[in-house]
Design a protein around this nucleic acid. Structure first.
Length: 559
DNA sequence: AGGGTAATAT
DNA sequence: GATATTACCC
């Protein structure tokens, strides 16, 4: 949905003025095509002689963005000479002859597309896409002069687009791919539903992801190396696709790079980094292990098609839990109540094709662990047992907004940022440093500090003001310490409800007291004094116990 | 089969 | 050392 009508408007200036070289033997046909192109505000230079066209592009390469070349049967070269000698220029071949072989040859020789005649406006309208594609798929160093301005003009649009649509994961991802893989990725593939691109065979390694479940590609790609013991859904990454091919032609390092690259597809990084990433990509993308046994579902998460060797490769992805992906994850977890947050459901909600349940489970594990660090036993929604409690009571846990398990959205308490915005976290690890002193929240340690606004993508940060739960806003005894440290928290975190100042909440105190009362055999939490004898007697009396049985010294009969 | 977690790999 | 994957158990 990238290019809505609205969006197209923003592009209006780019395709206009596109300089088209038209090589067409038949002057009538040439005139027709030219008229159509000019109607689209394209700038057309017509040639009827192949050599003239070639000399034109060699003398003034900047004068052409794209070429439309007729596969001529009259000419000995048939247009192929041009095609072969105009590698820098995206070239569309066209012919009345729809012979598959001809088409094949054109594409094989480097044509970006074969269009059968007659060339309708529809067909011609979108030729700019090849220009963009070329601009982004060529390394900057070898970028054709004429394409540089194209790229420069498009990049900002992409960024804009990305910013506007960040929440549209697929969109932003795709855009990002555009800007990131300036080297060889066929981003503007026609398989990409948002680009009404012509069907260009060589652009067809759909980067679009299909909803084909977990990791079939691994299954199919499992190699003899592993003797295909069983094609379970989660065989190892490296031993699956490509590994063995890569082994033969590349170093392990390269392979690793490849894998790394594979995951990059998901990352949402500043598009302005496209350049550098691209160069990285260029240098690393080199070995393509192609196992095209199963190329049907390139996936968003980690598998990207690589055109280096014409065919896509499907390396088993190592999911990179980028902030964006994690955001999705957290969102999913939040949507489900925490009790329901199981891998399969999270996976469903995330709607990230290619992501496997295993991936999610793994991430969930980590998620929980981190949560637990911050918030021991939080998911239990219960009072901690004594040991934990006394442990926690020593930990000035950050105060957090109340929430209730029945609240769908803000179930997550406040956690340190876990990968905030991509700009913030570029290069940062997603997880907060494991050793961050939970018990000594300082400005540096609390990642949310620098972020005045809270986002859903924050690690568990509340998204919306939380309606106070019907009961205790702090159902956890371990919150108690937070109260004692509300000051520290207050400096770094602005509660949506400015409720911090009310701490300690009476309800919490009550809870703690209740806990202590209900389990008198346990040591009292910090801050609580034992009840006075009088109050104990009064309470007993209130409960109808008027006489106190003699205390058994052994306590064995205390039933 | 799927969830949870420990062990292992990168 | 952190994090993702795999193995294993329930």
């Amino acid at each position: 949905m990238v290019f809505t009508a609205n969006d197209l408007q923003e592009w209006k200036d780019f395709p206009k003025g596109l300089k088209v070289l038209l090589l067409e033997g038949d002057s009538i046909s040439a005139a027709e095509i030219r008229a159509k192109l000019e109607a689209m505000d394209y700038n057309v230079s017509t040639f009827c002689d192949e050599n003239e066209a070639l000399s034109a592009i060699s003398s003034t390469p900047e004068s052409f963005h794209i070429a439309i070349v007729e596969v001529s049967s009259s000419s000995s070269e048939g247009g192929f000479k041009f095609l072969e000698n105009a590698k820098d220029l995206p070239t569309i071949m066209t012919s009345n002859n729809h012979c598959l072989n001809t088409m094949m040859k054109c594409i094989a020789l480097g044509a970006v597309e074969f269009l059968s005649k007659p060339l309708s406006e529809d067909k011609l309208k979108n030729i700019w896409q090849h220009v963009v594609h070329k601009a982004f798929s060529s390394g900057t160093s070898i970028l054709c002069e004429s394409l540089k301005p194209v790229k420069e003009s498009v990049v900002p649009m992409l960024q804009l687009q990305k910013d506007n649509e960040q929440h549209e994961s697929s969109v932003s991802i795709d855009i990002e791919k555009v800007s990131r893989f300036t080297d060889n990725d066929h981003v503007l593939s026609p398989g990409n539903d948002k680009y009404p691109a012509p069907s260009t065979p060589q652009l067809m390694h759909g980067t679009r992801l299909l909803d084909d479940g977990d990791c079939q590609e691994q299954t199919n790609c499992s190699t003899e190396k592993e003797s295909g013991e069983h094609d379970g859904e989660s065989k190892s990454v490296e031993t699956t696709c490509g590994n063995l091919n890569a082994e033969t032609e590349s170093t392990a390092q390269e392979r690793k790079s490849e894998i790394t690259l594979a995951r990059k597809e998901v990352d949402l990084v500043d598009t302005s980094k496209g350049e550098s990433v691209a160069s990285l990509h260029t240098q690393k993308r080199k070995v393509v292990s192609n196992t095209d046994k199963n190329t049907k579902s390139p996936n968003k998460v980690g598998v990207r098609s690589d055109s280096c060797e014409i065919r896509p490769s499907r390396k088993k992805m190592k999911v990179d839990w980028t902030p964006e992906l994690h955001k999705k994850f957290v969102k999913a977890v939040e949507q489900l109540s925490i009790d329901q947050a199981i891998p399969s459901r999270i996976l469903e909600l995330m709607k990230v094709e290619g992501l496997t349940r295993h991936n999610v489970a793994s991430h969930l594990q980590k998620y929980r662990m981190h949560k637990r660090q911050i918030f021991p036993k939080e998911e239990d929604r219960k009072w901690l047992n004594q040991r934990e409690r006394s442990y926690c009571l020593q930990r000035p846990i950050m105060a957090f907004p109340p929430y209730h398990s029945n609240h769908t959205l803000p179930l997550a308490p406040v956690y340190p940022m876990w990968g905030q915005s991509s700009s913030q976290t570029a290069g940062m690890q997603i997880w907060s440093s494991p050793g961050y002193p939970l018990w000594q929240p300082t400005a540096e340690n609390w990642h949310w500090k620098p972020f005045p606004r809270m986002h859903a993508d924050a690690w568990g940060c509340p998204v919306l003001p939380v309606p106070p739960p019907p009961q205790a806003p702090f159902p956890y005894s371990q919150n108690m310490p937070a109260l004692l440290n509300a000051d520290a928290a207050d400096h770094t975190f602005t509660m949506p409800q400015s409720s911090l100042e009310h701490y300690p909440a009476q309800e919490v105190v009550d809870k703690v007291v209740k806990e202590a009362v209900s389990k008198p055999w346990l040591p009292l939490p910090l801050g609580l004094k034992p009840p006075s004898t009088d109050s104990v007697l009064a309470e007993l009396s209130r409960q109808g116990i008027s006489s106190i049985p003699p205390r058994s010294s052994k306590g064995s009969n205390s039933g």
